[in-house]
Nucleic acid binder design. Sequence first.
DNA 1: CTTGCACCTGACGTCAACGTCAGGTTCTAG
DNA 2: CTAGAACCTGACGTTGACGTCAGGTGCAAG
Lengths: 123, 123
Amino acid sequence: MRIGEVAEKAGVSVRALRYYEEQGLLQAGRSPGGQRHYPDTAVGRVRLIQQLYAAGLPSRVVRKVLPCVDSGEEKAPPELLDQMAVERVRVDQRITDLLAVRDQLDDVIAIARDPDSDCSHVE
Amino acid sequence: MRIGEVAEKAGVSVRALRYYEEQGLLQAGRSPGGQRHYPDTAVGRVRLIQQLYAAGLPSRVVRKVLPCVDSGEEKAPPELLDQMAVERVRVDQRITDLLAVRDQLDDVIAIARDPDSDCSHVE
DNA sequence: CTTGCACCTGACGTCAACGTCAGGTTCTAG
DNA sequence: CTAGAACCTGACGTTGACGTCAGGTGCAAG
């Protein structure tokens, strides 16, 4: 597959794919003329990258996590595992933050919809 | 309170506070000499702003949400409420993404710790 | 009145994750 | 063989949330 097809199937821009390669997140073979070509698995990998980005993980984290997730998990060296655990904690913290924010939004929405209900969070 | 004290109590930089004012997120009175002074409530408001940022909300969302959360929720016009609902959905989506990522991390960590357990997610 | 720290206003720098434009090449269809 | 779509490599532009530096001012203490 060439870059355009991968981009379309994965729902990202061609520029993004070249950027991922530049960042070492996605390898590509080259045709004699210099054009990139990807295996079918590339689409899935790009989707994975997108998922990690969508979750708000910074690129340095993606860089650390990707090799573990796709290139056979059993090869992960212990120090890398520690990093993963650290990131796991960070993700968890972020989830907690988001839940709190969601609750705040729910409060405001509920109060606005039904002003007579008491504002219990102020006590 | 002057800006330095607020910054320290809220755990952010002085520059950040000036930035918030510039963005219309945080008002401040001025001394005759031109120095900003804040009420005690400013610290809490800054913490709220930080929480929203920490959750990954973009500034435009914070801009929309803040007036509802602190200046008396009952005044919120319906169109603003719709926006809040939209953002609520976005936050929810983000939580879902993060949960998926966390599960992936857990999988990788679990497999690495205990390679004999079967990789059930691949079936 | 002077020292000196906290404060002020610009204004340019930074980093990430691409967008976009310029100028040239490769590949495919007819 | 030729048009033109898809690709290539730089390289500069963008947005958000500030960092940082320059050059000047407010204010409490001695």
